[in-house]
């Protein structure tokens, strides 16, 4: 177990290193950073001085090492556009995105898994067919359209929920703001969380359904029935657990994309998260922000993948003995 985790950790570090290399290359070679920082009226001498001060004349290796050292301390330099440290900018936006992603992931899991189990067990019931039809909408409609539809119904028409923003937030410590503690904050979360999580929810539901149908046909489920076990135990202890390995893989990857690519939802709901920041960075060629965002996204994916790998081993005992086999 320890060997397994340490090997996975080494791989994770290698992946992060490669991403850092790409991110650094982006920063250093896509256009001249000096050109993007200063105005047209800056003299060549001033440019050269700035270049020297930023260390851009040092050998590439040294610059890369500096970039890595900086990245390790969350220091990605200053944003061209805002003239503020990138880490600070992202830090301000991160809580909003994380809270939104967290809620929508919970929504996807806690609605998607039971629906998947239900439709897998009662494949011919009317409710199953209704769930499947609704899930088809979730898969086929684009996110922005669902968002606008929800705003139209619940904000404009019924006026139950706000149509944009985070509502009132409470600052926790120096660097985290939360919307969980105020009514308006919670209300503001509902629509964007559903919009963001709907696709993942339908995906999880359909995946679990397909896996359940498969597992229910296996011999060990037949044998469990022949032993007279109650259906609660058969469905949840024996069947659901056996569907988990593929479900965890997909859910993990999806969770990564919820966090990293909440851009569309954040744009529709004017959610002050990282997605919006990234969009502005792209529009303004704000490379430090893009580089940092790339690193952060990679870090999130690598962490989730590591967690998924460890979960595999926790769930499936057959993977624990990979080294002792024949």
């Amino acid at each position: 177990m320890f060997g397994f985790i340490s090997r996975r950790l080494v791989m994770a570090v290698v992946v992060m290193f490669v991403v850092a290399l790409i991110s650094f290359t982006l920063f250093r070679f896509v256009g001249d950073p000096i050109n993007q920082m200063v105005g047209i009226e800056t003299t060549p001498e001033q440019r050269e001085a700035l270049r020297e001060r930023l260390g851009l004349n040092d050998p590439i290796i040294v610059q890369f090492a500096r970039f890595i050292m900086g990245a390790l301390q969350f220091d990605f330099g200053n944003s061209y556009q805002f003239k503020q440290p990138v880490a600070e900018l992202i830090g301000k936006r991160l809580p909003a995105t994380l809270e939104l992603s967290f809620v929508s992931a919970l929504f996807a899991l806690f609605v998607g898994v039971p629906m998947g189990v239900y439709t897998g067990l009662n494949r011919h019931s009317a409710i199953s067919k209704l769930f499947l039809s609704v899930s088809l909408i979730g898969v086929s409609l684009p996110t922005f359209f669902i968002g606008i539809l929800l705003i139209f119904v619940f904000s404009v028409h019924l006026q139950w929920l706000p149509s944009f923003g985070r509502g009132d937030v409470v600052a926790l410590g120096g660097w985290w703001t939360t919307g969980f503690l105020t009514v308006s904050g919670l209300k503001a979360l509902i629509l964007p969380a559903i919009t963001l999580g709907l696709f993942q929810m339908t995906l999880i539901m359909r995946l679990i359904r397909a896996e359940m149908l498969e597992v229910m046909r296996t011999d060990y489920i037949k044998f469990a029935r022949a032993r007279g076990l109650p259906s609660r135990s058969i469905n949840f202890i024996h069947a659901l657990k056996n569907t988990m390995v593929p479900v965890i893989t997909i859910t993990g990857l999806q969770l990564g994309s919820i966090i990293a690519f909440a851009i569309i939802t954040e744009t529709v709901f004017q959610w002050p998260g990282m997605g919006l920041l990234f969009l502005q960075a792209v529009q303004n060629v704000d490379i430090p922000i893009m580089a940092a965002y790339l690193m952060l996204t990679a870090f999130i994916f690598v962490t989730i993948n590591l967690a998924v790998d460890i979960l595999y081993v926790v769930i499936d005992p057959r993977l624990r003995t990979e080294r002792s086999g024949l």
């Binding site: 296996t218 011999d219 060990y220 037949k222 044998f223 469990a224 029935r225 022949a226 032993r227 007279g228 076990l229 202890i237 024996h238 657990k241 056996n242 769930i315 499936d316 005992p317 057959r318």
Partner: peptide, 22 residues
């Protein structure tokens, strides 16, 4: 309630009749 209690059953393939995760 009768299954397992009064009537037991043994299946053909021992490799697939046991839940691999328990």
């Amino acid at each position: 309630e009768l299954r397992g209690k009064r009537i037991g059953m043994i299946f053909q393939d021992p490799l697939t009749s046991l839940d691999p995760l328990q």
